[in-house]
């Protein structure tokens, strides 16, 4: 792969630095699929160096203040699409309310990359291994997509349509991520298996569940790097829903998740290993989430 890498960007493009969302959307409307949005650049510029993407127009959105914020409100937290990962990692609100997302971000790449990369960029790059995707899915987060003709929102779960592919239409831009507050007595966790912390995940998993009495409700399990898109393990969720999370049942839920995924063998891992390790980390993540609730936390 590195063979094709160069120390320059061997692509000529029109370059724009809009200062408002409106300006950015007008540029997108004008350039359509010939344009690419540049946020952190840690994925896009690599792809351009390797000539996998050769946009005719680059729209740099880092200078748009209205895309960079973390706002805690009564129903949840709103995050501007161009908010850098490092800012989210340092946010008390994210750590307190969405510990699985906080953990995922903290273990992504390196401090240099987290100082550059944005949460919107991580989603729009649509890697099956995107670490922010499983936590956002289990928290029921939604993305806001804007174009000159209006706005719509989508669950993060429905945003990914294939490797590198999203439900965004030409002329649309991701502007905001909204994460709802979780009910009281909810626990959540994130686990990533990778060769080193710097690497993309071989498998990642996020879980969230709410305890009522001795039983688990609102069970959500999302996995990355095990299918063409980040996915929910719905059968595994259903097996635990409304039941007391006994040790036997947690192991069984891990096994069901391992049957549900559709992993491939690639440079990072084999399909067989991904299935084996999924059993273990799904059960581990559920134990961790339960532990969090039992010690009295609401996160």
């Amino acid at each position: 792969m590195n063979r094709f890498n160069t120390h320059i960007i061997p692509v000529a493009f029109e370059y724009h630095e809009p200062r408002t969302i409106r300006e950015a959307l007008e540029l997108l409307a004008r350039w359509g699929e010939d344009a690419k949005i540049l946020a952190g650049g840690t994925d896009l510029l690599v792809q351009m160096k390797m000539r996998r993407v050769e946009p005719k127009c680059l729209i740099n959105i880092k200078g748009i203040p209205e895309l960079d914020y973390i706002r805690e409100g009564p129903t949840g937290v709103r995050i501007g699409a161009a908010t850098r990962l490092r800012r989210l990692e340092r946010s008390g609100a994210i750590k307190r309310l969405f510990p699985a997302l906080h953990r995922a971000i903290r273990w992504m790449a390196s401090v240099q990359v987290r100082n550059m990369a944005t949460i919107g960029g991580n989603l729009c790059n649509a890697s099956p291994a995107a670490d922010t995707a499983p936590p956002l899915i289990v928290y029921g987060a939604r993305v806001k997509l804007a174009s000159v003709s209006g706005e719509r929102t989508l669950p993060v779960e429905d945003f990914f349509t294939g490797p590198g592919q999203t439900a965004m239409r030409p002329g649309e831009m991701l502007t905001e991520i909204w994460i709802p507050r979780q009910p009281e007595v909810t626990g959540s966790a994130f686990i990533k298996v990778a060769r080193t912390a710097m690497d993309l995940a071989k498998v990642n998993v996020a879980v969230a569940l709410t305890l009522k009495g001795w039983s688990a409700f609102n069970v959500r399990i999302a996995l990355g790097s095990v299918a063409p898109t980040p996915m929910r393990a719905r059968e595994a969720e259903a097996a635990l829903e409304g039941r007391p999370p006994t040790e036997d049942l947690l192991r069984r839920v891990g096994e069901i998740a391992s049957e549900e995924i559709r992993p491939i063998t690639d440079v990072r891992s084999t399909a067989e290993y991904r299935r084996e390790v999924t059993k273990v980390i799904v059960a581990d993540a559920l134990r961790e989430a339960l532990g969090m609730v039992r010690v009295g936390g609401v996160a």
Partner: peptide
């Protein structure tokens, strides 16, 4: 003051 990668940063930025 924050560490970033100069090989993935556009000079205009």
């Amino acid at each position: 003051g924050e560490p970033v990668l100069s090989c993935l940063t556009l000079a205009v930025d």
